[in-house]
Design a protein around this nucleic acid. Structure first.
Lengths: 110, 110
DNA sequence: TCGTTAGTTCGATTACAATAGAACAATGGC
DNA sequence: GCCATTGTTCTATTGTAATCGAACTAACGA
């Protein structure tokens, strides 16, 4: 639990990112992080089992989308926004614009 | 072979689109279509078996990414660019910007 | 009408991914 | 030190998707 693997943003492929975002659970997590900026795993689990949620966070981390840091016993997650905006400009805007039923149309929301 | 199913663009979900783009073969096809505007299936098969390529085109069609029309015995494929730009603004720009080793950085390339 | 071409559909195989329970690990509080 | 909390890792199951050969279909030309 000590060290968390986070790939360098240049090592991340766009296929990987698309794949990570193609799962409804993970897309929901990312979209929530677009709004909340930072959140614990349990705050984003949507009532799902811990092991499933942990799996999805791993995929998101390995795709370079999410950064996780230890804060005591909880893990705080945030989007790697600046890096992603530089590596894949506009991508997070697309994700944010697709947030259902919220103010998704505001490009600056993410 | 007569009628081709193409979903209305509003019925397409962003998850579906991300999923379609997460496969290397399909991403390559879409990126080629970003440049060539229109092409037959065989021109984009990359030497793969016909059945595999046909499968991938079906996924792309059902995700709303590609429009296929019959032209004699061949099928011509093109991106549904205008519709996609309206439904998911910026998405095709991200895809085009990720074109390897070409002039991918030009936002207007797609 | 017969063959050719281009692509689809079918069927089987194989590989990978989602799910979730159980055991484990790390931190913090008592 | 002991226990609760939070999340990870392990393992198994299940479902879904990629691949490809083979049969099929539609359009075209000789």
């Amino acid at each position: 639990m000590r060290v968390m693997k986070h790939p360098a943003i240049q090592e991340v492929s766009i296929e990987q990112v698309f794949y990570a975002l193609s799962d409804p659970v993970r897309l929901e997590i990312v979209q929530k992080l677009c709004i909340t900026d930072e959140a614990s795993c349990s705050a984003l689990d949507g009532g799902r089992p811990k092991s499933s949620v942990s799996h999805h966070f791993r995929v998101l981390r390995e795709a370079g989308l999410v950064w996780t840091r230890n804060e005591g016993v909880t893990h705080m997650n945030m989007l790697r926004r600046a890096e992603l905006d530089e590596r894949f400009p506009g991508l997070l805007d697309v994700v944010a614009a697709a947030i259902p039923n919220g103010k998704g149309e505001t490009r600056l929301g993410c």
